[in-house]
Each structure stands twice: as structure tokens, then as C-alpha cells.
């Protein structure tokens, strides 16, 4: 199928990109890796009149180390997330999750910013960014704004981004002492989209959990935090029983956007089993 016709521009600065988006109005759309957008164009699910290619904006391609944070440029590819030494050292959850995205060709093109802006409820990177309490850095005609990830994802394929705003980067805290991470991805078969994903970061001191961040992919219309499980884990002993007890608090009322034909009972059960397994796996990370 052939996309509807559109104009194409390839700005070289963030300012020019924002200006182009603004000028293009409602018909303007950013293209990053194109791994989700081109399919939507071909099937005419979106029909932009102008594509703003952000592939040449060097500022958005950088990974910048701050004292306690890492700022990852929006056009950092999933391949780079997987291999960049700073990401691996300071935000290993993002490297782990990138490993699970698509295939090598997709990872060479697809970007972190694209995954986050696309906001597929079954997307893997959004769940990781949410578990990390990442912040989304945005540039628009009104200047820069920083949106906490908890406020960024507002619905299936919907975010707090305005049409004339550009996602320029994602800021995540550097992983501190005692933290370990895991991403558990479950699919009905290898090429199917994520049926359920669990991003886990836990911190233990001695035999006790002191912190837990858990976010689920494809458990609602956005990635969601498993708050009840997190609360139950903090202060709990590091034992399989305690983890099971905490994971069983998931209430099973999730309403995934893409159900893939499976029953609610199965999803609810999977969420508990996989959350338990993800926490246990994080402990042995």
C-alpha cells in the first residue's frame, strides 16, 4: 500500500525542527527511526502532510552524563542502548529492554525517543522508562519542558506531547548501590508483540528490600506501575515467599489494549507469575 503524499524536511537544528513542526500545524509529524511510523503511513492510519526528519539533529543523538543522571538523546537507537557503555553501566534496565525490541534491523533504526513518543501500551521501552522514573525532555515553541514519565503516557498511543513539540531526550537517574534490575517479556511466540512485560528495579540491603520499582507493559492503556507490589516489597525479607505474596497483590483487573485473544484469567495469572519471576531474576542479576 502506498502512503498519501506528503512533504519532507530534514532540519539540522532542534530550533529549525520546532519551527517546521509549528509551521506544519496539525499535519506535521516527526519521523525518527520510522519503524512504527512507516507502517502506519503505508496503511494510511496516519496521513501527515509534512514529515520532519529528526535524523540529522546531532544534539538529539548524544548521551550526556550528569552527576546523578544520564540524559539519553531521543534518536539514540535501540542498538546503541544495547551497546553504549554509559547506558549499560548507569541505566542497565534500558540496555536489557532494548535487547527485547524487534530484530537487529529494527534495533538499528528504531529510537528510544520514537518508542516513548509512539507510546504503544505494549511497547517495551516505555515500561522501562516508567520504572526508572525517567523524565521526558521536550522542546517546543514555548521553550523546554520536562515531563515526569508518570504524567507522560496518557493513553494508547497518546502522550502529553503537543503536536508542535519535539521529544529531545530522556533523563534517568543513574543506578545506585544495591540496585538490581530485570526485564521479563512474555510472548505467545517469538515474533508476536509483548503479551506482558515486567520491568523491575529492586534495591536490597542485607536480607531486606529497601526499594522497588515495577512497571508493566500491555497491562493497561499505558504502561503502569505495580504500586501495591512495590509497597509490599519495601521492608519485606528477600525470600521467595515474600516475593510471591507481594506479586499476588496484583488485582488482575488490567485491561490491556491488545489482548491477543487471551482470557482475562490468563492475563491476571501471568501478571502475578511473571512479576514474581522478574523480581527473583532481578535478585540474581
Amino acid at each position: 500500500m502506498i502512503p498519501a503524499p506528503f512533504d519532507y524536511t530534514r532540519p539540522t537544528t532542534v530550533e529549525d525542527a520546532v519551527t517546521a513542526l509549528r509551521a506544519g500545524g496539525a499535519g506535521a509529524k516527526v519521523i525518527a527511526g520510522g519503524q512504527s511510523l512507516v507502517r502506519m503511513l503505508q496503511r494510511r492510519l496516519v496521513r501527515p502532510t509534512l514529515l520532519v526528519d529528526v535524523g540529522c539533529l546531532s544534539r538529539m543523538r548524544e548521551v550526556v552524563e550528569e552527576p546523578d543522571h544520564l540524559v539519553i538523546g531521543a534518536t539514540t537507537t535501540q542498538h546503541e542502548l544495547l551497546h553504549d557503555a554509559r547506558v549499560r553501566a548507569h541505566a542497565p534496565l534500558l540496555s536489557l529492554v532494548a535487547r527485547h525490541v524487534g530484530d537487529p534491523a529494527v534495533r538499528h533504526r528504531g529510537t528510544l525517543g520514537g518508542s516513548v513518543a509512539h507510546a504503544d501500551p505494549a511497547g517495551d521501552p516505555p515500561a522501562a522508562v516508567l520504572a526508572l522514573d525517567g523524565e521526558i525532555i521536550v522542546e517546543g515553541p514555548r521553550g523546554e519542558r520536562v515531563i515526569p514519565s508518570a504524567e507522560f503516557f496518557v493513553g494508547p498511543f497518546r502522550t502529553a506531547l503537543e503536536p508542535d513539540e519535539l521529544l529531545v531526550g530522556v533523563r534517568v537517574p543513574k543506578m545506585g548501590e544495591g540496585w538490581t534490575v530485570h526485564y521479563e517479556k512474555f510472548r505467545l511466540s517469538a515474533q508476536k508483540p509483548t503479551l506482558l512485560g515486567v520491568a523491575v528495579m529492586v534495591r536490597r540491603v542485607g536480607d531486606c528490600f529497601t526499594d522497588a520499582h515495577i512497571a508493566l507493559a500491555n497491562s493497561g492503556s499505558t504502561p503502569v506501575r505495580a504500586t501495591a507490589v512495590e509497597v509490599a516489597l519495601v521492608g519485606a525479607d528477600v525470600t521467595e515467599e515474600a516475593v510471591t505474596k507481594a506479586a499476588d497483590l496484583l488485582d488482575g483487573t488490567m485491561e490491556p489494549f491488545a489482548r491477543q485473544g487471551v482470557s482475562q484469567a490468563y492475563l491476571a495469572h501471568l501478571a502475578r507469575v511473571l512479576t514474581r519471576r522478574a523480581v527473583v531474576a532481578a535478585l540474581s542479576w
Binding site: Y8, I31, G34, Q35, V38, R39, L51, D53, G55, H79, P104, A105, V106, H108, R109
Partner: peptide
Amino acid sequence: CTVHVDGTPVHSCLYPALR
């Protein structure tokens, strides 16, 4: 449809030719 662009494999059906 996989091809190499500057040495890396991509699905050419998802790659805008202009790029």
C-alpha cells in the same frame, strides 16, 4: 527486503527512500 545501508542491515520496506 533486508539490505545494508552504510553497512547496517535495515528492512528496506520501512526505510524512506529519501533517507
